[in-house]
Design a binder for these strands. Structure first.
Length: 184
DNA sequence: GGAATGATGTACT
DNA sequence: GTACATCATTCCG
């Protein structure tokens, strides 16, 4: 985990591609390979939640690297981030899509009727499929919810982030080249 | 205090 | 492609 979140936030966003997110939840185990990420920075990034400094909502985004930042969006969904950088920095990597590996049936249950390709192809979808929730905000990612580093190198595509109105031009979105499991 | 907005997903035309 | 659910936070007066 430490090796996974070392270095700059954009480095981590790239390195997380191919890593495996595992959740041993009370109702079962699920896992998925990370295929799409976005970096959110602390300086010069108008799209980042940390741009206003610490608030009750984004407090966990300022924890040490390797913690989770889970926030509610649009009043009804949640998104999951891996905090990066030193304590107090306020940078994180948003997980936007996974390739489902284990617990496909459980994911389908949690997601309701959903095509396999739609189980984890979006930030709020993967949160629901993996059984992640507000209870994981601020959790350290080394227990029942954790990330395993990939073995081999992968090819990465870079582009602008999705859904942001500010800082939309910055090339801070990263995808596994050729993956069919990405969002949009 | 009130209005607008948002790192989205789903359903419907 | 467009409409809308739904609410905490943000921004303005």
């Amino acid at each position: 985990m430490n090796a996974l979140v070392a270095g700059s936030t954009t480095q981590v966003a790239r390195r997380l591609l191919g890593a495996v997110l595992v959740h041993e939840a009370p109702d079962g185990c699920t896992s998925g390979r990370v295929v799409e990420t976005e970096a959110y920075l602390s300086k010069g990034d108008e799209a980042s939640h940390s741009r206003m400094g610490t608030t009750p909502r984004n407090a966990s985004m300022f924890l040490a690297a390797g913690h989770a930042y889970v926030y509610r969006i649009y009043g009804m969904h949640h998104c999951f981030n891996v905090v990066t950088g030193p304590v107090g920095e306020g940078e994180a990597v948003l997980l936007r899509a996974l390739e489902p590996l284990e617990g496909l049936e459980l994911m389908r249950e949690r997601r309701g009727r959903s095509r396999e390709l739609d189980l984890c192809s979006g930030p709020a979808k993967l949160v629901q499929a993996m059984g992640i929730g507000p209870q994981h905000d601020g959790a350290q990612l080394d227990g029942r919810l954790r990330l395993d580093l990939r073995a081999s190198r992968v090819e990465v595509d870079v582009g602008p982030r999705i859904g942001v109105t500010r800082g939309a031009a910055l090339p801070l979105r990263f995808r596994l080249r050729g993956s069919v499991w990405c969002s949009r």
